[in-house]
Structure formats: C-alpha cells, structure tokens
Design a protein around this nucleic acid. Sequence first.
DNA 1: GTGAAAGCGCTAACAG
DNA 2: CTGTTAGCGCTTTCAC
Lengths: 355, 355
Amino acid sequence: MVTLADVAKHAGVSSSTVSYVLSGKRSISASTRERVEHSIATLGYHPNAGARALASNRSNIIALMVPLRTDMYVPVMMEIAIAVATTARTHGYDVLLVTGEEGPAAVRRIEGSALADAMILMDVELQDDRLPALRQTGWPAVLIGLPADTTGLSCVDLDFAAAGALCVDHLAGLGHREIAVIGEAPAVYERRTGFAERTLTGLRDRSRELGLRMLHRPCEGSYAGVAATLARIYEERPGVTAFIVQNEAATDPLLALLRQQRRAVPEDVSVMAICPDQVAAHASVPLTSVAVPAQEMGRYAVEQVVAKLKGRRSDEVVLLPPELTVRESTAALGTAAQRSASPPPVPGNDAALPA
Amino acid sequence: MVTLADVAKHAGVSSSTVSYVLSGKRSISASTRERVEHSIATLGYHPNAGARALASNRSNIIALMVPLRTDMYVPVMMEIAIAVATTARTHGYDVLLVTGEEGPAAVRRIEGSALADAMILMDVELQDDRLPALRQTGWPAVLIGLPADTTGLSCVDLDFAAAGALCVDHLAGLGHREIAVIGEAPAVYERRTGFAERTLTGLRDRSRELGLRMLHRPCEGSYAGVAATLARIYEERPGVTAFIVQNEAATDPLLALLRQQRRAVPEDVSVMAICPDQVAAHASVPLTSVAVPAQEMGRYAVEQVVAKLKGRRSDEVVLLPPELTVRESTAALGTAAQRSASPPPVPGNDAALPA
DNA sequence: GTGAAAGCGCTAACAG
DNA sequence: CTGTTAGCGCTTTCAC
C-alpha cells in the first residue's frame, strides 16, 4: 500500500507538504507541487479514507436513506439515487446506501459512528419517525419530500399543487369543462406522504377558479382496479371529457380500457398524467404529462447538502416548478363533440375478455 | 462525542477490554462484560468508523457498482440494490453506492483508498472493462451477471438457458408446436450482456429436442415496436400459438395488441414472460412467467462476498435455477383449436386507432 | 482475565 | 513557502 509518507519520500518533501498539495489549504511553489503530483501519479497513491476521516473528522460520505418498500415509484427512486450518487461524486463525495429498515436507529448509528458527514432522506412521510432523531443531531440533512413540520429542515420536492393546477389549466385551455382525476391507491393516501394531497389541492382550487367540474377517485394500480374506478366515474359523471392520472401503474390499463370501450384518445377523451417522462412517453398513446423531475431532485438535494457542509446554512423548502409536456393524448374538446355526442356502446365481445 | 476511552473510564476498565468486549476476540468475565455493556448503553457509544478502519484495515463497507443507464431493468436493479443493502447490514456491513460512470477508475479508487473491503458489480457485460482492474487487485468481488471469461471471479446470475428451456417445456406440455419469442431490443444484444443470448440458446436447444418450431425476433419495448414485431411474426408464421416474451416493456403492449386483434389470451394464444414477478402478476392478463430472482441474487452476492472476506475463498459461478409460476396467460392448445382454427380477422375499426 | 502502549495514515497546528 | 510533530479513536501485540 502506498502511503502519504511514501509519496513524500519519493518527492523529497515532508509529508505535510504532500497533504497540502492534496488539500490546497496552503500555497505551494509550482516546482514542488509538480514534483509531488508526479510522485503521486507514478506511485499510484490514493489517500486512505479511514485515516483521513479520523484525522479530519470528515468522511466525505453522504448517507442516502431509501425506503424499503420496493413496490412504489421504483423507477423514480432509482433515478434519484443515481442522480444523487453521480452529483455527489462531482463534489468529491461518495454515497452510502442505507435502507429504511433500521428506521430512526440508522440516523443515530450513522451519526454516532461518523460514517457520513450528511444525510439525504427519500420518501419522507408527513409524520416521519426519522425526523426527531435527525433534528436532535443537528446534522446537515436534506429531505426529498415534504413532512408536515419543516422547521429546521431542508426539503426538496416537486410543487405538486402547482402541478395539479397546471393540468387543469391545460385542459381548461382546450375547452374541457368536466374532468376526472384517477388518483393513487388508497394506501398511499393513508400513508400520508403528502404529495397526493397536495396535488389534489392544486387540482381542486384551480378547478374551482376556472369553474370546471372535477371528480377525484383513488385507484389501485391493477387492471381490475382501474376498470372498476373507470366504470364508477362514468356512472357518476357521464359527461366527463378528460382524465388526469396520478398513478404510474394506472396509465397503461386506463388507455387499454378506453380503447376497448371505443373511446379514442384524444379524439373522444383526453388523458394526462403526472408521472416520470419515460412512463408518459412510452405509453401506447404518448401522454401529455407533468413530469416528476427525479434527476433534478437528486441533484438539488446533493447541492443543498454540500452547501450546508461548507457552512452556508440555509434551511429552506424548495418546491421545483412543474413542467408540462404536450404529447398526443390531449386535444381540444371540439374534436370530441364532432365525433359523437355520447361515446359508442361497448361491444358485447369485449365484455368476455378478462378485466 | 463518546469514545472508547470514555466507555473504559465509565466502566472502570482499560480501553483494550472495551475493545475486546466489542469484538469478542478474547474471553471476558461475565461481570466486566456486563459493566462495559451497561456503560456503552448509557453513554450511547458508537465506535468511530474511520478510526476502526484505520486500525483494523477493514472498513466494513461493501461497494456496489450500479450501471449508469437508468433505462433498463430499473425495477430489477433497485430490487437487487435494496436486497444487497439489507443483507449486508445483517452481516455488519454498510453499502457504498458507486455509479458506473467512473468505470474501471472507480475500482482502483475504491481499492486504493480502502474505502470498501469488497465489491459487488451489477450489470456485467461479456467484455467488461472493469474486470481487468478487478482481477489485478485480487479483491474480494462478486459479479451479478456473467462475463465471457469468468476465471478467478465469482458470479451469480439466473440460469437463463434453463429459464428458456423451462418456458419451452411448459408450452410443449400444453400441446403447442409452433412458438414465437419476442426478445430484447437489438441494442441489448449489441451490448452483449450475455443473458439474452443464453436465454435464446436454452429456448432453441429445448425446442429442437422437443421438435417445436421456434421463431425469435428482437423487439423494441415501445408500443409501435411491439406492433411491428408482432405483425412480422404473424406474417412469417401464421400458425404460431404461443409467445414467450423476454422484454419487460413489451408485455403490456403485446397483450393490448392481441386484445385489439381479437386474439383472446389464453384461449386463442398463450403468452409467457421472463420478467420480475411483479410485472407478470400485474399485467392485464396475469402472466405465466419465469421470474428474475432479483432479491436472491442480491442476497447471494453479499453472502458470497462476506464468505470471501472471512477467508473461505471460492471463486464459483452460481446460476440460480429458474422457477416457473403458472398464472392465467397460458392454456392447452386444444382450447384454441376448439374456438377457431384461424384467428378472426382484425376489425377495420381498430386499424384507425393509434398504434 | 485484564492492562499498557505502540502504531494505523493522515491533518493541522506550530515553528521557522 | 516548507518541515516537525502531536494527536484523531481504535486494534492488537506484549506483558502480567
């Protein structure tokens, strides 16, 4: 193993000089810097992480706490995690992957052992049991997601309320007056992650402002679940001309069901989604959507936490502005009215197919 | 910060005693052990990771290298990563998340800095450029996936050849004689990750053994891509009665298209998939499938690497046996023959819908 | 069964 | 601008 002392000997300087060449914390003459760097390269020296952490009290590691549930938002989670890891590297940090399994104990363990310098929490719930431990440590931390009480904490998230409003704006602009919202599974609302409620608020408020009728129904992501929800919606509100979906898993079933019912998208009915761009773009009808900006959230979280580590403290809540991408699933209401006042009856044939 | 010395003082013993209580490397009288443990608990002591790493030459960290591409197999990747993290914890290890961006340099960096004790590589390609660096270091490592040359390396993967054979067995058992395989995107074959080819070998060999006709076509995961591939297959082999899909993204489009064409699953045509159980179970028709055992792969990789760290060296290649789950998408050929000798023509209506 | 003490490799005063 | 040196907190001989 090559140590700093080896490099110093090879370059004919003291070990502190080598250390300072590495850290840049004091000025070094061009010639010695050059010699030292040459020695480092030829010997293939890498500073020992443990020794550095012990001496400097900083590990250059950021802990990323991911949820244990592997069933929800997985693509988004992975995208965030990878964005966190790559952004962290550009700032000289590595990322420690901690699962939610340990819960609050993980926060204490990581802090007590000085394994990491800071922490990023994903999938934060409104009443997150990791937050008390976090607040107590006073550690640099950034949450991805918004808890109920954000005092003393930094958070990043999509502005879901604005996202909801944006959807309504888009549909209203196309002349739609009666819309339905296919929401997350009931379990999501029960877990109180907050984002689903915030979206709903945005949807409701803007609908009221613009005088649209809006119906919201939670919905399981399964094919059968979507079928049931869809049937229920059409029963309660036969005049619905547009759907807003906030449930990644529901988009494909919804499109398939509409097709089966001979309701053409977007001619007979408009559909839009709040979901990752990939999901929207690869749907059977490319969906007009508001994206969940996973990468930006990851990147931002790291930059925020690094800023804190450098002393610029700023406990702020940042809500990223939503961005709408118009694809092929939404159209002006006129089109639908021209094709048929009421959608054609479902052929008996289809009823026999598995739902 | 609470140090080991603090604990020693509190318990009225020497620091080495505390250390040995923690490591269990020498026998301690019941009474002192008790006192020490009590002190640890009341003071809330956590050993300092950096100091421990420096003194013991072991960081208790396993590096997990994930691919940078976020577009493929994301759910599987995440499932593996989480399984790795949780399993590692049960063995006293934490997991460092390293992205593929750095390539071979990452291997050298992690090793040189002694940041981790071992390494797990995901998404290994046949000619992986990280392998030379890995072999050179002689570091404990386990690959998830199978490179072309496995000498001196430990690998875990699904036995994709057996998985292919298992699919053919199942369909042959149901009386199918002419099958089609909808494969991964051409890019996957070009990247030479190996698993797609291995599956194909298994499919081909078993088909030959059992005297089935088999047609394979690569396929983009998009709706349009699947539509094109499907059309091509039916053109070349009108008599096809069953499909095997190895492309997560293709399953939903395929089912939607078949429904549109009035080919009922499984009455007119059987469909099976090689994909994660979740995907198979949530399809519009729950799919008979061979699962990619993400969790087991992650768990196994950690256990293998931990065994190596404990001196039990064993450079072995482990191919996990595939497991078939019968769901609702496959049926005996008889059924199809009874319903209609040739599938009904596609209604003109459907052709107008977006593909 | 327990203590004392010598490092592990690096950083950061302190001294020139 | 550079060198000397005292720890950082823990593990592990060596000694009793």
